[in-house]
């Protein structure tokens, strides 16, 4: 049974939504508040009344509460006229649907987003496990932090809903991209612990620098584990991207594994997009 969380729905909108519901889905309704725990849901559907005020902030907060999981956030409204969906998509919504559209079309779209992600194949585990092990080792060694690996999913989207990403291009026997993405607060906590100093003393430049160094260390230590294997790669100088909802380009026809870690209830993500040139994996 799929769990869907409907947020801010009026009784009338609840009835309209039922017509669009797929089989094997259970909807629970709640009013929006800042402490919603939405991680166990398969989908969030947010109802938008006529007024749009603060809807993008709500979407941002919901996306943050997803803790890097690929939970679809559908924004639903009942207006006939077209609404520019871009601001909502930028804020973190996956799709914007209207009750004015056909119920069958909406049902198909909702159903599509409820298709479950797949588990890693054995050959994918072979290259993901070293990244998990080394990421935990680096944070433990440099910051005394215990990072818990929570889950992995595969994504072919280039949207990343964090605040800051460190990115490393890979070349050589394998090609691809590695990216580590943090929300600002956790990045600041980690960098402060790495420097054995107070968080108040950590400025934006140090966060950029630290996130860059973390992806540098993850890449460098993991490449050693791949010596003699088709996943071996060479690294370059890392780059840093800052801004909510930023985008990272991957190679065409590749899928990124998104590894989610948790530190004291806060999450960060490592994106691993790696493709051996010679072997078909």
């Amino acid at each position: 049974m799929k769990k869907i969380l409907g947020i801010d729905f009026s009784p009338k909108a609840e009835i309209a939504l039922l017509k669009m519901m797929v089989k094997d889905a259970y909807i629970q309704y709640e009013k929006f508040h800042d402490d919603l725990d939405i991680r166990d849901n398969d989908m969030i559907i947010l109802w938008m009344e006529d007024r749009h005020e603060q809807i993008d902030q709500k979407i941002c907060k919901l996306r943050y509460a997803c803790k890097f999981q690929n939970i679809p956030i559908i924004l639903m409204h009942e207006q006939n006229r077209d609404i520019a969906s871009q601001p909502f998509i930028i804020a973190g919504a996956t799709e914007v649907l209207s009750f004015a559209d056909s119920a069958a079309a909406c049902r198909n779209i909702i159903n599509g987003y409820l298709i479950p992600g797949r588990e890693p194949l054995p050959e994918e585990k072979e290259y993901l496990d070293p990244f998990i092990r080394n990421t935990r080792h680096i944070l433990k060694t440099m910051a005394g932090i215990d990072a818990e690996f929570k889950k992995v999913y595969f994504s072919n989207t280039i949207r990343i809903f964090g605040d800051v990403s460190g990115i490393m291009g890979l070349s050589g026997i394998s090609e691809g991209t590695l990216a580590v993405t943090f929300y600002w607060d956790l990045a600041k906590t980690i960098i402060a612990k790495m420097m054995s100093t107070e968080e108040d003393l950590i400025d934006a430049e140090l966060i950029h620098d630290g996130v860059s160094e973390i992806i540098n260390m993850i890449s460098g230590t993991t490449k050693k584990d791949f010596v003699g294997k088709p996943y071996h790669f060479e690294i370059t100088l890392p780059s840093v991207i800052v801004g909510p909802g930023h985008q990272i380009g991957y190679f065409q026809n590749t899928t990124a594994a998104v590894l989610i870690f948790e530190v004291d209830g806060q999450s960060f993500a490592l994106h691993v997009c790696i493709k051996p040139k010679t072997a078909a994996v």
Binding site: T141, M142, N216, M217, G220, T221, V227
Partner: peptide, 24 residues
């Protein structure tokens, strides 16, 4: 962060006295 054996040898051959991999 470059911690592969051949890289370490390359550095030592070039004239470094020691090598410490990150993280440390």
């Amino acid at each position: 962060t470059e911690s592969e054996e051949d890289r370490i040898q390359q550095v030592l051959t070039a004239g470094a006295q020691g090598y410490l991999p990150k993280p440390f």
